[in-house]
Each structure stands twice: as structure tokens, then as C-alpha cells.
Design a protein around this nucleic acid. Structure first.
Lengths: 207, 207, 207, 207
DNA sequence: CATGAATGAGTCTTCATTCAT
DNA sequence: GATGAATGAAGACTCATTCAT
């Protein structure tokens, strides 16, 4: 955590890294709820500090702009996705089975964190360029997890995917998982998460 | 056009429908450019009116809130997508071939209008609920176009898709097309549009 | 009417005095209702013209500013008060009885036109100085009616009022009548119009 | 003061009640002058803040709408009337004499604060309903002061008023006092304050 | 470290009035 | 005489950010 913190592109006035971590966790928790409820633009810094339980002045001791809060939130959400995904991953005999379970786990995480995932989809654009790059890098890291799994399956012969398709397929898995959140207005009318997952896996892995 | 106008949820003070259509086209043209450049939130109504070449008062004769402009823009973009897609559609002997060409056409449109499509993805959330519904309905209409094509292919035997998968597949086509715009930060590094299209079609239609 | 019109301080583009009178009657009728409903400031000229049934351009053919409408309305209300008051006046044997009946009639008119009278009380201040003078003159004219009656009563011996009090008493009658409208929030809880009238007359004429 | 503050229907962002009181006094002082000069509608919030000596943002830390300023002003004026009236009241032997002196004092206050009283008469209508109720309640409280005095005079036999007339008489005193301000265009031509007071008392107390 | 009052540029929106047709 | 589209100054209010305490 402290290592991540030191890489953190968000500047803080306060020097005690322990305290910074604690306060930022508070900030993220408060902001996520508010962003879910009313979006980034309609949430004020005052509301965030109030929800955090400290003053607006204190808030600005730990960030240097409202966008920083959005970055912290996006970063946290990605971490949460990663954590939960990793936790759910179990190595199986063959790569195909591992991938199938990973997709299932991933879609489940998307469902659990749908409001949060939506924040990333909808508010990312409001980040300044350098902060956006950080977030996109994380997205790519998660994508890479799937890419590695696909390769595993190809190596052990359980999956037959063209080498040229591997990268794309990983992206597809990511997007089709996120799609469960950002197309929920259409998909929820027709599918449960289980049905959606099963059918997408079938299409992806070409039964 | 007048029929579309009458269905239009955006109120105008001005009674002449001809003029309303003309002015709104101006508004959309100006706003699209500005939204592409700086996003909806960072674009001011004054900038829009200035770009239109008329006064802020005149702008408000044709809309009743800034959100209306966003709606007009989203609506226009969807219409443009629909128009170009329809224009590109040619019936072929079998449904599979028609679908393949449709996907190709659709992806091409996504590429051409990528900045515009991005607006819908990024700013839709800023629409009031009733206006958002209108936009989502249009999205569903386009999705339905693909659904019908898939069914055609199933009927003439050129496509073998499970009935339960049809709806989902149509959504996947839509999303994988849009993904070319909202994941361009990753995809452009690896694929040209032609490559991307070819590979996605291969995956979708399971050669 | 045309004579009054010619004295009218409100300028009209239109030369046909007949038409001016007709249109202005429309304007007053529309505006009175709107002013009662939402007050002068919150009523727009557009609303007035819409309520009149003609365009905003036409409205401005018959007035030269929004304040003119207010003046026309105030003037009309005063005329209406005067007309109804005059209509109700019947000469009796003695002046005291005449006055008593006049007060009764006046209070009744105040009650009937309470919403209108309120407009004068509340919006008069929005008139430019010269128009306000016109309205106040009319108020004085009505006051003078009561003054003359009191003098009649003094002359025929039915009323004993000190000469120095005559003018003031007339003003008091006016104000106590108007008070029935502008203090209705308090008076209505305690009195009917009949009770209010009876008691005020008793106090005024010192039974 | 804090007790009054807690009953205050005007919300402030600022927590320190001491400071709120100080700033609001500034606001009232600035606004009263401006309202006297140009009326509520023609006074802008920017002018108020400028006159206060602080920024528009600061103004809005202590109120939440322009109407709040009007309420603060009305409230202050009433308080001032009450204070001055109370200060001037001296208990005399009998109730009639006390009342006479009270009326005199009240009329004197009306004269001193005529511009301020006029604000209440002319701008009250611009208050939202709930704020208007607060103001009217205060008006009733002052009215009740006179009512109690009249009853005192009835009890000690110095005044002979019908029980049914007490309430009305109190209202009449209030209105005839305020009339000195809102009919000054007519009354000033004929009376000095002393004359006006003397004659009204004579009429009210039926020599 | 924490506080929160102060700032003021910036935003959307309104609406009385004009004038070309 | 009638119309109504165009104008743009003006107004209320917001809110991210700072800085003295």
C-alpha cells in the first residue's frame, strides 16, 4: 500500500503516509457513495468533506483538486475489482476451465460492483490526461490477466485460439463484463446474471 | 422531418417548424464540435450560441435548457449512425453474408463517427431521465436491426445461432462496434480498423 | 371614454382610437387576471400578449412599456371602484344616512374587488413617477367623494364633525375600506364583511 | 440572540452564530438603504454584497436567496418598531392615558421609520409564503400590544369600548399609524405629525 | 494538522423590447 | 396593423479553492 502510495500521482500536503492512507480511504468511501448517487459533476467538494466527517480545509490537505478525488475513486474501484478477481481465481487442470471460471468470477464482480464500474465508465473523461493514463494502465493490467489465461489454455491444448486473436479476446472479455453494467437498462430485462454469464461464455469459448 | 419534430421532446418557443429544424441543425453542428473538443460540462451555452452565430437569447428560443442541446446532439448522432448504416446495407443472397457486411459497415461508421459516438458514451448520463430514455430507445432500435439480420440468417440456414443467443449477439455486435471508439487508447496500438473488423467478425460468426 | 383616452399618458402606435380602446380593454382584462395570480413582476409581457390572444408585437403597438400595462390596470381598477360606488349611491334624507350607506357600499366594493385593490396596494410602487401621480390623483378623487358627503351631513346637522377632521375622516374611510383587503389575513379570521362594516361604521360615526 | 437565531427561518452555511449575527446586521443595514432607494426588485444581490463590503459569495454564506434578505430586513424593521415602541411606553395611572401615549409613541415611530415601514408595505408580497407568515405573525404581535392596553383601560373604567370592538380597534390603530407612511403623498400636504396624531387620537378615543 | 470563512470568476437562464417582413 | 424571431444586457446563484487562525 505504501509502495502504491508513493507512486501515487496525487499530491498531499500532509507528510505522514500512514495518515494520508487513512484519510484517503475515508475520502474514497464517501466519494464513491456520492458519485454513485449523483455523479461526479453534481457532487460538491463540500459534500465530500461533510460525508468524510471533516472540514473542506482538511480535504484539501490530502488532495489538490476535485479531480484527484475522482482519480482516487477510480483507482480504488480498479483495485477492488482486481482484489476480488484474484481472490476468486483457482487454478484448474486445464487453461480453458480456469478461464471459464475467471470469466464467471469477473462477471460476478462486475455485477457486485456495477454502480462503481459505472463511475469509471461515465466519469473517466473528467480526469486530466495524466491521471486518466494511470487509470487506463490499470485497466490494461486487468486485461493482461485474461490474456495470460488464454495463452495458458492454448499451451495446454484446451483452447484453440488464433495467436492474433488472443489480445482482442481478452479485451472482449473485459468489455462484455463491463457491458453487463452499462447496458443494464437493456440486459436486465432479458437475463439474469447467471444466464448472461453462461451465454457469453458459450459465445466466447465457442462451445 | 415534421413528423420527427412532433415527436421531439424538446420545446421551442418558435412556431415555424421549418425554421426550428434549420436552427437546430446549426445548434447541433456547433455543439457536436464543442462537445468533442471539451466535453459537455466544460462547454458553455454562450460558446454554443457564439459558434452558432446567433445570440444566447436566440439559442434559448429553440431549446429550454443546456441538456436539451445534449439531447439534440445525441439524437442527431444516432440518426447519423442509422442513416449511414442503412445506406451501406445491401441485401445479399444469404443472411450470413448480409450480416457480415452490416457489421463491417457498422464498424466503419463507428470509426468515422468515433468522436461523436464517444459523446454518447460519455455524456449520456448528464441527460435528465426522460431524455435519456429517448436516446436509449434509439440505441435499442439500432440493436434490433442486427437482431433481425441474425434471424434472417437463421431462417435461410446460413447462420446457426441458438434462438436464446440472438438478442445477446445483437447487443454484442453493438458494443464491440462502440468498443472500437471507447477503447481506442488500447486497440489502436494493435489493430487497424480492417484488422479489428475482420477478427471480430471471425470471433462473432465463428467461421 | 375617448376623452379619458386622450388624457391617457400611455402612448400608442395605433391611431384609430376606437381600436386602441378595444385592445386596451383586452390587455387590462388579461393582465388583471395574471397580476392577481402571480403579481406584476412575475408576469411576463409574453404571457400578457398570449392571454390577450395576440402577439407580443401587437401588444407593444398599444403600450410602450410593461409599466404602461400596470398603469392601465390600476386606472381600470379605480374606474371600476368609482363606477360601482357611484352606482350604489342613493341620496337619503340626511347626510349621515347617505354617508353610512356610502361606506357600506364602498366596503362592499372593496370586498368584491379585493384581489384588484390588492394589486394597487402592492404594485403601485413599480410605476414610474408620472404614472403613479395619475393613479394617486384618482385615489384622491374618490377620497373627495367621501369628503363631500361628510360636509353634507355637517350642513344638514345630521353629523357633528369638527371641520378640521373632515379631510382626515375621508382618508380614514378610504383606508379602513382598503384595510379589509390588505389585512384580510387577520380580519377574515374574526369578522364577516357585514360585521366588519357595521363595527367600523359604528366607530367612525361614533354611534 | 442565539434563541432568536434558532427560530430564524433563514439558513446560513456559517456555523458561528456570533458571526452570523454580525454579518446579517451588515446585510440588513446595507439592504435597507438600497431597498429604500430603489426597491427590492431593482436592487441586485451584487449591489447588496458590495454595499456590505464583502463578496457575493460571502453574502450567500449567510442567506440562501435574495428573498431571505428581504425577510431579514422586514424582521429587523419590525424589531426596531417593537423596540422603540416598548422603550417609549410608560405606565400611567389609567389605561386610557397609557393608550394615548402609546399611540403617540407608535405614530412617532412610524414617522421616524417611515421609509422602512414603507418597505414592509410594498415588498412583503415578494416573500415566499412561509417567510411572509413569520412577518405577519410579528405584525399581529404588535397589534396585540394595543389590544392589551385597550383591555386595561376597559378594566380600570377609563375607556368605554365594546368588547366586540377591541380587536378591531387595535388593528385600526396599527393601520392608521402605518397610513401616515403610505398615504404621506396626501397627508403631508395637510398635517404635521403632531396634528395628525392629535386628530387621530381624538377620533379613536372619541374625545 | 485542522478549520471554515471568504472569494469571485463563471454559469445558466430570463425577458422586455425591437424591427424586418 | 399584425407578427414573432432576434437580441443581449442583466440577474441570481454556485462552488472549487485558498489562507489566516
Amino acid at each position: 500500500m505504501t509502495k502504491l502510495e508513493s507512486l501515487n500521482p496525487v499530491y498531499s500536503q500532509v507528510k505522514d503516509p500512514e495518515l494520508v492512507a487513512v484519510r484517503r480511504r475515508q475520502i474514497v468511501r464517501a466519494a464513491v457513495d456520492l458519485f454513485v448517487e449523483k455523479g461526479f459533476h453534481k457532487t460538491t467538494t463540500r459534500e465530500i468533506s461533510r460525508e468524510c466527517g471533516f472540514s473542506i480545509g482538511t480535504l484539501y490537505e490530502y488532495i489538490s483538486s476535485k479531480e484527484d478525488v475522482l482519480y482516487l475513486v477510480c483507482d480504488y474501484i480498479h483495485s477492488e475489482v482486481e482484489t476480488r478477481l484474484t481472490r476468486a481465481l483457482v487454478a484448474h487442470q486445464n487453461g480453458k476451465e480456469t478461464l471459464r471460471q475467471a470469466i464467471e468470477a469477473y462477471f460476478k464482480v462486475m455485477d457486485e460492483l456495477q454502480d462503481w464500474v459505472l463511475i469509471i465508465y461515465q466519469e473517466l473523461q473528467s480526469l486530466p490526461h495524466d491521471l486518466m493514463r494511470h487509470v487506463l494502465r490499470k485497466e490494461e493490467e486487468i486485461t493482461a490477466v485474461f490474456e495470460r489465461m488464454i495463452r495458458k489454455g492454448m499451451e495446454d491444448g484446451s483452447l484453440s485460439v488464433l495467436p492474433a486473436d488472443v489480445h482482442l479476446m481478452a479485451h472482449n472479455i473485459m468489455v462484455l463484463g463491463e457491458m453487463w453494467t452499462f447496458r443494464r437498462w437493456a440486459l436486465r430485462k432479458q437475463y439474469t446474471l447467471a444466464e448472461y454469464t453462461e451465454q457469453q461464455i458459450a459465445l466466447l469459448l465457442q462451445k
